[in-house]
Amino acid sequence: MKKIVFAILSLSLVSCAVEGLESTIGDNSNNPNNSNNSTTFTDALPLNTGNYWTYDVVGATNTRDSLYIFGNETVGAHTYKKFKNRNNIATGFYCTSLNNNNVRKEAGKLLLTGNLSVLQGITLPTGVDLSVTDFIIFKESATNGEILSEKTGTFQQTISSLPITIEYRLRSIGGESFASYTSPNNDVYPNVKSTKIVVNLKITSTQTVAGFPITLNILPQQDVVVSTQYLSKNIGIVYTKTNTNFSLNATIAAQIGLPVTNSQVQEEFLDTYNVN
Rank of each mutant, 00 (worst) to 15 (best):
L47W: 03
V5Y: 01
F93E: 15
A253Q: 07
P46N: 09
G211F: 14
Y273K: 04
P125C: 01
F246A: 06
E150G: 09
A254M: 07
L248V: 04
K202Y: 06
N88K: 13
S194K: 04
T208N: 15
N33Q: 13
I235Y: 09
Q120A: 11
G121A: 00
N31T: 09
S161V: 01
V199H: 15
N33H: 08
K3R: 05
F6A: 08
N100F: 10
I218V: 02
S35N: 15
F41P: 05
S205N: 13
E150D: 10
S227W: 10
L270P: 02
S177D: 06
N234G: 11
Y189G: 05
V103C: 06
D56I: 08
N30L: 09
D271F: 01
K82A: 15
T242K: 07
A142W: 11
S183A: 15
S15K: 01
I235Q: 01
R64T: 11
L13R: 09
N51W: 03
V198G: 13
E167Y: 04
C95N: 00
S141K: 14
Q266F: 02
Q229G: 07
P46A: 13
P163R: 12
F138C: 05
T54E: 09
A44K: 01
Y189R: 10
T54C: 05
I164V: 05
L13V: 09
T182W: 00
T91A: 10
D187S: 15
V128Q: 11
N28W: 07
D129R: 04
F246M: 09
N101Y: 08
I8C: 06
I256T: 07
V199A: 15
R171E: 13
A210L: 15
S23V: 07
T158A: 03
Y181R: 03
R86E: 12
S180Q: 06
N87C: 12
N30I: 02
Q120M: 10
T272S: 14
T154I: 09
A253R: 13
L21K: 10
V75M: 12
N115G: 14
V238I: 05
G121Y: 11
A17V: 12
T206N: 10
E19C: 05
T113F: 06
R104L: 07
Y94T: 12
T61G: 11
V238M: 12
N234L: 05
S232A: 14
T244G: 09
N99C: 01
N28E: 14
Y239D: 02
N186H: 12
S161F: 00
N200K: 14
V192A: 14
T123K: 13
F41D: 09
F70Q: 10
V192M: 08
N33C: 12
G121L: 00
A77C: 08
P213M: 11
S97H: 01
T182R: 04
Y68P: 02
L112A: 00
R104E: 04
I235W: 02
E176G: 04
T154N: 15
K193W: 09
N37M: 10
P163A: 06
F178H: 14
I203K: 02
N28S: 15
S149C: 11
A179S: 15
S131N: 13
Y55N: 04
E167C: 01
Y168P: 03
G211L: 01
G211C: 11
I89K: 03
N186R: 07
S194I: 04
T244E: 15
N245S: 02
S97Y: 01
S161L: 04
T126D: 13
G127Q: 08
S183H: 06
T74N: 12
G257R: 08
T91R: 08
